[in-house]
Design a protein around this nucleic acid. Structure first.
Ligand SMILES: [Mn+2]
Ligand SMILES: [Mn+2]
Ligand SMILES: [Zn+2]
Ligand SMILES: [Zn+2]
Lengths: 144, 144
DNA sequence: CGTACGATGTAACATAATTGCATTTAGTGA
DNA sequence: TCACTAAATGCAATTATGTTACATCGTACG
């Protein structure tokens, strides 16, 4: 849960008008301590009031394009979404449970990556780095 | 291209019978210097002689399950496949071009990750770690 | 041979995401 | 306030990727 982010402010900083649906999507993404799939986000929103599935996809795309939300790949078929790194959210790695699909955020210090040399020498344009651990979460492991 | 791998041997080491189709799939995966999608692999195989799309998926699943092939997630919707780390293939990060979908293997030393502390303290079971850089490759960048 | 089991082929299905187009909403200026 | 416009949203159809169910084939072994 993010107590330091003002979602309308995040939108306006990204030069996006703060429509009701955008705020709702961003609240669901931001108020979670772990990334969610588009379906999770849609289901959560539907519990309150109606929204179209496609609208959720479109808003997520838009927020990713504008750097407000981060699209995270998993060991599975769907993307997950979390708040993009910003002044109070450092980039960090994730753990993906191959059994239940739960994704956890790991602390930025838990895995340290040295990419300085890489950045200096790589001939292409670097957009982002993703570090993900796949495995079986504690909860799933306990059930054997 | 892997000159050090004997594909039939890789299969027998994994206790898998070396059927013609399995060898063909493994050759395509192993003879490439970069990971390929299931569709790429299928298309390559079809150019020589007929094989079913589903057979390719099944063989890839099997080889991944038996640790011969590695399933790699991308910034896109499809998984890519490469030879799994083994005695002459160290684990290494990849670069994914968000424009053309080309994935490149990076040298194991280019990005160094320290996960010792993490392994000691993480309560779940760790299967693999994936490090991926997303961006625009040199080739796509040159075309603006 | 004949049987059995693993491998493959084929069609149907499932899931996640995208596209095309219609409709609604919100903003802007007369 | 009203009309016009552009953006946002809804809805149906479609695409991309991967999986399942079941039939058939091929081969090892008695
Ligand atoms: Mn996170
Ligand atoms: Mn590789
Ligand atoms: Zn789990
Ligand atoms: Zn490219």
């Amino acid at each position: 849960m993010c107590h330091q982010c003002n979602y309308e402010e995040l939108l306006s900083n990204a030069k996006l008008s703060a429509t009701n649906n955008r705020i709702r999507v961003l609240e669901v993404v931001g108020n979670n301590s772990f990334p969610l799939s588009a379906k999770d986000i849609f289901n959560t929103l539907e519990r309150n009031s109606s929204i179209n599935r496609v609208t959720v996809y479109r808003i997520l795309d838009l927020l990713v394009d504008h750097g407000v939300v981060e699209r995270i790949s998993t060991g599975g078929r769907a993307f997950y979404y979390g708040l993009a790194p910003n002044s109070h959210h450092e980039p960090h790695p994730h753990f993906y449970c191959m059994n239940c699909g739960q994704m956890d955020c790991l602390s930025p210090e838990s895995l340290t990556v040295d990419m300085d040399d890489f950045i200096k020498t790589f001939p292409g344009q670097i957009e982002k780095m993703e570090v993900r651990i796949d495995g079986i979460c504690k909860n799933c492991g306990n059930k054997q």
